[in-house]
Design a binder for these strands. Structure first.
Lengths: 296, 296
DNA sequence: ATGAAAGCGCTAACAG
DNA sequence: CTGTTAGCGCTTTCAT
């Protein structure tokens, strides 16, 4: 933070008025002489004065900063989310401060502390894959810091949540595969700890059940460490005595891993094996979205 | 910024010591009784005390915030860049504040003002397509705010710049097409105002020249409004009396538009028409990267 | 309509 | 080793 920037004191000195007068002029108070006001504004512009938001924040106990914590910024879903958030917050006069947990529980705790220290006016949080204990999030509530969870939420937390309808999305995706004629559908599932994994798994299970298809236990693979494992697990599925004829993946990164693995092993998609994933098209700021599925 | 958070004053009161003692304990000063220090630290942890960075910033004239301005957050290049920046800054104890110009000159000016107001310790900026006048950037220099331009830089500005070697990248990409046997190579170029457009164009021209291929003026199309126009221009190229047999695009979004347009019109790639784009693989924090090209 | 002064939370002389 | 004090830039009573 640069020393030697113009302050209201500098303006006051140059105009021979008090700093309170300058302050009033700057924030458009009406209990001020119009001429004084104009003089202040003109000088401010001329000297490229920019208000010190840090000082304002301290004085007003309000930073106008929204904190965002996402598992990974460079993920098309989250970067699109951040972009959307940035758009609306800036329109409302807020800035965003962004942290990424890199899917690490401990990093997420640090992120939360950082944003508390920055005294952000509110936090938007999408929890990491690793996170099971959410005490660090309860701290936010105990400090009365407004909080909204999005996409990766946690059931036990009593806060506003913005989520896609994972169950419906999974259900539809699997129905799509079934209607395309596939009958032995495997599922590369996400970590059991995540609610969205369980919701998608349930959608998968119910779709099979409602179409009277059997559930094969070894068709369901939880990929805890995510993308690294997905390729290997895909191979395992293919090498089963009775391999699946379609795969429904938990998310994009798994779909991509599976896709490459399939192609590398010479499978024709969708002729020899089907593959679907879920994705969200709408702005994430609308509650309860309907995900769509893509076929490869 | 939440009222009612714990302050060093609260800690001091509860421990019957002065606030300076608490302050000293918290920042690990050595001129303090070890026992007092422990007592302070324990109480701080117990009460979930988190230092007020706003107050620290004001006092220290340093915010530990790095401002970032990009044309578009939800762009894979920029989101990857942001992610990388966030990673290293957080490691160094800095936070990032992100703005997007949406490729608008006026928004970029606002972004700069915002970051000045936030008294960020430095700014990383990638200028918008629309930006020609850079007076708002010179203001940063006049205020001694550290500045680094990246990717979308501006020649006339005397600051550190982090860029990919656009000329080389374009040159290589076009050579690749030529070596693949294409001879009538068109170029969907970027806005003339951007240095990187001109560099890539020059690489394209030199590659043709060095292979004794003629330059056809109507094979070079500047797409000023970017992706919207790219599809239409691709079509125009295909409808020329003597259409090109390959297209070299300025960037990804154009490549995608061109790709879809070609496919929609039944062209086989790369059999009937070639297409290359440039992309950057390495971290953007290294100066002068060598771009690679992909063939579709 | 304007000024003087207090205080937001913290740090850093300065004094004991 | 500890406490007192001033001040970062700003807003907001409270006087005038």
């Amino acid at each position: 933070m640069n020393k030697g920037q113009i302050t209201i004191r500098d303006l006051a000195l140059k105009l021979n008025v008090s700093i309170s007068t300058v302050s009033r002029a700057l924030r458009g108070s009406n209990e001020i002489n119009p001429e004084t006001k104009i003089a202040v504004l003109e000088l401010a512009k001329k000297l490229h004065y920019e208000p010190n938001l840090i000082a304002q924040s301290l004085r007003n106990s309000k930073t106008n900063i929204i904190g965002i914590i996402v598992p990974e910024i460079a993920n098309s879903f989250f970067s699109a989310a951040i972009s959307g958030i940035q758009e609306v917050t800036s329109f409302e006069g807020y800035n965003v401060m962004i942290c990424q947990s890199n899917e690490k529980y401990l990093t997420e705790i640090e992120n939360v502390k950082t944003l508390i220290s920055c005294r952000v006016d509110g936090i938007l949080l999408s929890i990491s894959h690793e996170t099971e204990n959410v005490d660090h999030i309860r701290v936010l509530q105990s400090k009365n810091i407004p909080l909204v969870l999005f996409d990766r939420v946690h059931e036990s937390l009593d806060v506003s949540k913005v989520v896609v309808d994972d169950y419906q999305g999974a259900y539809k995706a699997v129905c799509h595969l079934i209607q395309s004629g596939y009958t032995r559908i495997a599922h590369l599932a996400g970590p059991k700890t995540l609610l969205i994994s369980r919701d998608r798994l349930q959608g998968y299970l119910d779709a099979l059940k409602n179409h009277n298809l059997p559930v094969e236990d070894n068709y369901i693979v939880h990929c805890n460490t995510l993308k690294e494992v997905a390729a290997a697990e895909t191979l395992n599925l293919l090498n089963l005595p009775n391999p699946p004829d379609a795969i429904f993946t938990f998310d994009d990164s798994m779909a991509i891993k599976a896709l490459f693995t399939l192609k590398k092993n010479g499978y024709k998609i969708p002729r020899e094996i089907g593959l679907v994933r879920i994705y969200v098209t709408d702005s994430i700021l609308v509650t309860s979205l309907s995900p769509t599925c893509t076929e490869f």
